[in-house]
Structure formats: structure tokens, C-alpha cells
């Protein structure tokens, strides 16, 4: 990766300039979310009950990857590994562990749907548990909101509106002090968690019923998700640095995905990513597209600051 970077780091590429960097990272993120769903169902399909044991080790392997990335001083490497480690830990230590507790340990029954109440809904036991974690999610949001070193634009906006900036004082860190592996790792997990919880609350018949309120909440959600992700996308396409764009694309892609989840709930299209064995060709194309964009981003020219030059370590 470093050789490719060194060869291309002039910053004068005609291809890798706005809006290409933002567009590529956005689509990469959408493909990654779809493939993440496929990975989960395939691993579950292949391993059966062993998936719970395997998930302990897959998650641990992701932490080892993260450890290597944290030791690195290459921001681009840190960002990629932080992202992949975050995805893996979320899928294994969160989703599969919730699955174990809901299905195999506590013996929860699935939530039913349909006019006669005899259709198994998509809210499986693990998602019923996940819906209950919203308080923990809000607790962590307090940390990010009141942390003076946060650089997320949304939390900075909160701090400004809450009049916190004077009390918190200036950040004690500049960009070269930051370790982007752990930042991207936590960002991937937190954003995924947030979007899951948002979706689950909108679909929870115990909270929004199945009638007018359900429809209104879901319509409002699609509107908010579209406007929010659209606004963030308009910022994303101005990015020049691939590492920064990749980190920014994580929330943009995930917030946009909320509308996709609701559209599939309304049966506007089929969730091919949760039935990859039925859509082998389509999901192979998605995988190919993801790998192509991944390789393109790896080969894209980088600024010296992205590859560790001028950073401690």
C-alpha cells in the first residue's frame, strides 16, 4: 500500500478529486453494509450452532487487527482496519451474542406479524434485545456530546447549541495526536448501533402500533434519513482525502440505509443481501463492486499526512 501511495502522492491526480472521492466512499459504504448482512447470514448458515463459539474468536481476531492498527502511524491503514474491526466486532460480539442470548439462552419466542399474526416478523429475538439497549446508546451519546475532544460535526453542533464550548475549552488534541484506528472502530460500532436502534424503534409495534402512528413515524423517519444523509452527502463529495472521506462515509451510508430498511419493510424491493444463496449473481456483483472500490481507494493518491509522514511513531 505504501509503495502505491508513494508513487501517487503528488496530489495532482485528475481522477481523485471532488466529488469522486466522496462518491466512491459512499457507494463502498452501501456495498459494505449489504455485504455485512450477507456475511452474517452466511456464517450463521454455514456454522449453525457453532457460530456462537466462532464469534468469540472472530471478534478477538478483529481486536488483534485493531491492536496492530493502533500501533501504526499510518492514518489510512488505521482507518481501514478500524472500520473492518468495528464491523467484525459488531457482527460477532454484539449481534451473534444477542442472538445467542435471545434464541439459545433465554428462550425468547419470535415476534409475529401479518393480518392473522401467523407470519414470523423480521424482528428476531436478538433485535428485541437490541431495542432495549437504547438507554445505553443515549448514555454513550452523552459522553460524545460532552467530550471536548470529539471532532464529529454533529456533536460539535450540539456543543455549540448547548453553549458548552466555553466551558469545555479548546480541544487538547490536534489531528496528529489522534489515533484513527480506535476512532474509526468506535465510530463504526456507534453509528451502526444508533441506526439499528432507530430502525427498531420505528418498527416496534409495542411502541408505534401497526396503524397510523406506525405509518407516520416511518414516513417521518424516511424524510429525516433522506434529508440528513443528503446533507451529509453534499459535504462528503467535497472531501479530497480518502481517509477522512471514508470515516465520514460511515454515518452517511448508514443513515441512508435506514430508508432502505424501511422500503424493504414496505416490500418496495427484496432484501437480496439477507438471502445471498438465492441471489448468487447479484451478490457476487455487489462483492466485486466493493472489492473494486476498495482497491481503487487503496491505490488512490494520498497526502503525506494520511500515510504517517509527520505523525509521531
Amino acid at each position: 500500500m505504501t509503495a502505491a501511495v508513494a508513487k501517487n502522492n503528488s496530489g495532482k491526480s485528475k481522477l481523485w478529486k471532488p466529488p469522486i472521492v466522496g462518491v466512491v466512499t459512499f457507494f463502498l459504504m452501501l456495498f459494505a453494509i449489504g455485504l455485512g448482512h450477507s456475511f452474517m447470514v452466511l456464517v450463521e448458515h454455514w456454522l449453525g450452532q457453532d457460530v456462537y463459539i466462532a464469534s468469540i474468536f472472530i471478534g478477538a481476531a478483529a481486536i488483534v487487527m485493531l491492536w496492530y492498527a493502533i500501533k501504526s502511524n499510518n492514518e489510512n491503514f488505521q482507518t481501514w482496519i478500524g472500520f473492518f474491526a468495528g464491523l467484525l466486532v459488531w457482527m460477532t460480539w454484539v449481534e451473534f451474542f444477542f442472538m445467542f442470548y435471545g434464541r439459545m439462552n433465554w428462550g425468547m419466542a419470535p415476534r409475529m406479524d401479518g393480518a392473522d399474526g401467523l407470519r414470523v416478523s423480521g424482528t428476531y429475538p436478538e433485535y428485541m434485545i437490541m431495542g432495549a439497549t437504547v438507554g445505553l446508546l443515549m448514555m454513550m451519546m452523552c459522553f460524545y456530546t460532552f467530550d471536548k475532544d470529539t471532532r464529529c460535526n454533529m456533536f460539535l453542533w450540539f456543543q455549540k447549541k448547548l453553549g458548552l464550548q466555553k466551558g469545555l475549552g479548546p480541544s487538547t488534541k490536534i489531528s496528529r495526536d489522534r489515533n484513527y484506528a480506535i476512532i474509526t472502530f468506535m465510530e463504526t460500532i456507534y453509528v451502526t448501533w444508533f441506526c439499528y436502534a432507530w430502525n427498531l424503534l420505528c418498527f416496534d409495534p409495542g411502541l408505534v402500533g401497526k396503524g397510523d402512528l406506525f405509518f407516520a413515524v416511518n414516513m417521518a423517519t424516511v424524510f429525516v434519513a433522506f434529508v440528513w444523509s443528503g446533507y451529509c452527502f453534499s459535504r462528503l463529495i467535497k472531501f479530497k482525502r480518502t481517509s477522512t472521506a471514508l470515516r465520514y462515509a460511515i454515518p452517511v451510508g448508514n443513515i441512508f440505509w435506514i430508508s432502505i430498511e424501511i422500503a424493504t419493510k414496505w416490500k418496495l424491493f427484496t432484501e437480496i443481501w439477507v438471502r445471498p444463496w438465492d441471489y448468487k449473481i447479484e451478490m457476487s456483483v455487489v462483492l466485486g463492486a466493493f472489492l473494486l472500490l476498495f482497491i481503487l481507494l487503496i491505490l488512490a493518491p494520498k497526502k503525506p499526512s494520511e500515510i504517517g509522514k509527520g505523525r509521531p511513531g
Binding site: 435471545g102 434464541r103 439459545m104 428462550g107 425468547m108 419466542a109 419470535p110 401467523l118 414470523v120 429475538p125
Partner: peptide
Amino acid sequence: IPCDVFNKMIVVGPLGTK
């Protein structure tokens, strides 16, 4: 309930449905 529904329920809620 029809056994067909039970067969689907035990896929995602094996212990609870049983």
C-alpha cells in the same frame, strides 16, 4: 397454529417456541 408456522418459528426462536 399450523405446524408449518411452528416450523418457521423454531428457526429464529427455537427454545422459546418449543
